[in-house]
Design a protein around this nucleic acid. Structure first.
Lengths: 336, 336
DNA sequence: GGTGGCAATTTGAACGATCAAATCGCCCCG
DNA sequence: CGGGGCGATTTGATCGTTCAAATTGCCACC
């Protein structure tokens, strides 16, 4: 704590103070077994006294690694703080693996790959987390060709067993849990409200509902509503379903936004209690705030983040691991 | 694009290919004026052919700078995606200044300062953005003592003219705009609904309402409601105000969450239109989704981010600039 | 007493870039 | 024809760390 300058203390300063060579100091830190106990003690004392911390740039240069993971932060179009939460989990997971998260912003599509390439070639990052995988994402083959380490959060739809490494949450299973839950509470007419066909995860969630219903021998006719994400449009779509003969008494939804819409459309009964029961997806704080006792399906983001980081770091460290797909189960948070 | 390995091409490879010395290659990139045009052209061609990109670790070591800005990502307790949006703006702003954002996670309070110190001493980051300034934040004097470069987003309350550099948004002025807007639309009984006393920004917003009201010669008695952030509690607090004699016809609110609550409490009239008019704060997408035509006060996050980055980078680059406080004006987004 | 073995430590050489100073080549002028 | 001046380019040193190989000191054994 007495170094003249914040960054003035080098390994040689410590070596001089402890009366050893710089390599011995390095060994104390990296190969303690090689150093005699008394020497190590003396060196450690010098380190503390001088407040020495190894220079990261020098280590990076020598070890040809930045211990940084790159993540493109998408333009904030959404509504939920899903990204906030994942980012937090990812930062924590990276931290305990000795890595840091380095953010970069999206660029024009035709510069996007150049941005990724730059970060790798300059050694600014060791690999990437791809959190916004799209169907036939052109980044994935491009990374693979160049042997750029990366792990997806989200399945590369259509190539789940292909050459890419990913971690994802089984949305169909989550939705099925929701259906089981509602059936357990006596519902039989359970509608699905979610995105229009075309998003991989949305389609999967809808199929999960369909399979769960038929497993219970229940009909799904006239019980499916689709609309873009948005409370107002979701409420309208839910109202249309509720206006039919034999209306649903409950909804499982592709997102919390859809769920809030459905609940709004259902309205309140004489006792001021929601008239339809709903299960949302994501268990977002915003939804719980609006609709405090609404059930929702929670993705295990901490676990996702840990797995992503662990898969990525082994790949970064050069071991040529085979591609791997990890499927995690979401959990129904039942309220009310 | 023909280097054998992703990161195999060094400045010496380029030099050899172009038939010059490594320093000339360096000059082409950093001091083009020093190099003869034909030589520069030849070198640039070699750079392109080999796909050379300077190694960041080597540059960092030599220049004693990481070109990274550290940001502690808070635990995701909130509801809005405010952080998402600021993070995005900050990433973009940092990027165009040649910096990257490096995230780290909060630790136990007594390790927190050690985490900051480590990042600086190891040269992992050049400085910090402090986005969660609290009243008498103990980090600020600690940074200052150690001459660690940092810039706050948010005022160091009570020391606005003190030794710290900050960027903030004038909440009182924003709220005053809201009041003016509502008065222009014929309202006279305008309530304020926001946080209980004790948060710097909340108190400021409340004072802004009070001053604006008295500027217009309007009474504020019985028009103030406070509660924690949350739609349900906000609705209750708003209901209490509405139940009084001479109830408010409009609300200005400390946050969008408060505003959504107030609008909920107001309910709809015979034509299905909201009965009370509200102005929120933050113009968060979540609020607009729930309450599509609600007005709100928007913080100029892009501008905040640009200023923060610009102030920080000049401080990082060693110029001993005096402390500076930058106050930006929010903008009322009037809908309906 | 010479030698082999071994643990502890040191020395030299990278890693890839940039700065400062030295050198080169060329033209011009006395 | 020698040397001064100047622009273009190269050489040497350095940033702080770690790896690999060399060295030291010590003990045991023949």
């Amino acid at each position: 704590m007495s170094g003249r300058d914040a960054n003035g203390v080098t390994i040689s300063d410590v070596a001089a103070a402890a009366g050893v060579s710089r390599q011995t100091v390095s060994n104390v830190l990296n190969r303690p077994a090689r150093v005699a106990p008394e020497t190590a003690e003396r060196v450690r004392q010098a380190i503390d006294e001088l407040g020495y911390r190894p220079n990261r740039a020098a280590q990076n240069l020598r070890e040809r690694a930045s211990r940084c993971i790159g993540l493109k932060i998408p333009a904030p179009i959404g509504v939920s703080n899903f990204l906030d939460r994942f980012l937090y989990s990812l930062t924590v997971a990276a931290g305990s693996a000795g890595y840091h998260l380095l953010l970069f912003a999206p660029t024009a599509v035709d510069e996007e790959l150049a941005t990724y390439e730059d970060l790798i070639r300059t050694g600014t990052v060791d690999g990437f987390v791809v959190a916004d995988v799209s169907a036939r994402d052109r980044r994935l083959p491009w990374f693979a060709e160049r042997r750029i380490p990366f792990v997806c959060f989200g399945r590369p739809w259509g190539q789940e067993d292909g050459p890419y490494t990913w971690v994802d949450v089984d949305g169909a299973h989550g939705i099925a849990q929701g259906v089981d839950h509602l059936i357990g509470r006596g519902h039989r007419r359970i509608a699905y409200l979610g995105w229009p066909e075309g998003t991989g995860f949305g389609d999967e969630r809808r199929r999960g509902w369909q399979r769960a219903m038929s497993r219970h021998g229940l009909d799904t006719d006239g019980l499916i509503g689709v609309c873009a994400e948005g409370v107002a449009v979701a409420a309208e779509a839910a109202e249309r379903l509720l206006a039919r003969p034999e209306p649903p008494t409950a909804f499982v939804c592709g997102s919390d936004t859809h769920a809030v819409g459905a609940r709004l459309a259902g309205g309140l009964d004489a006792q001021g209690r929601p008239r339809v029961e709903v299960v949302g997806f994501d268990d977002s704080p915003a939804a719980t705030l609006i609709s405090p006792r609404m059930s929702s399906i929670r993705q295990p983001l901490d676990e996702v983040a840990r797995r992503v980081v662990s898969l990525l770091t082994t790949r970064v460290q050069g071991s040529d691991s085979p591609p791997e797909g990890v499927m995690l189960r979401p959990e129904l948070v039942a309220r009310e």
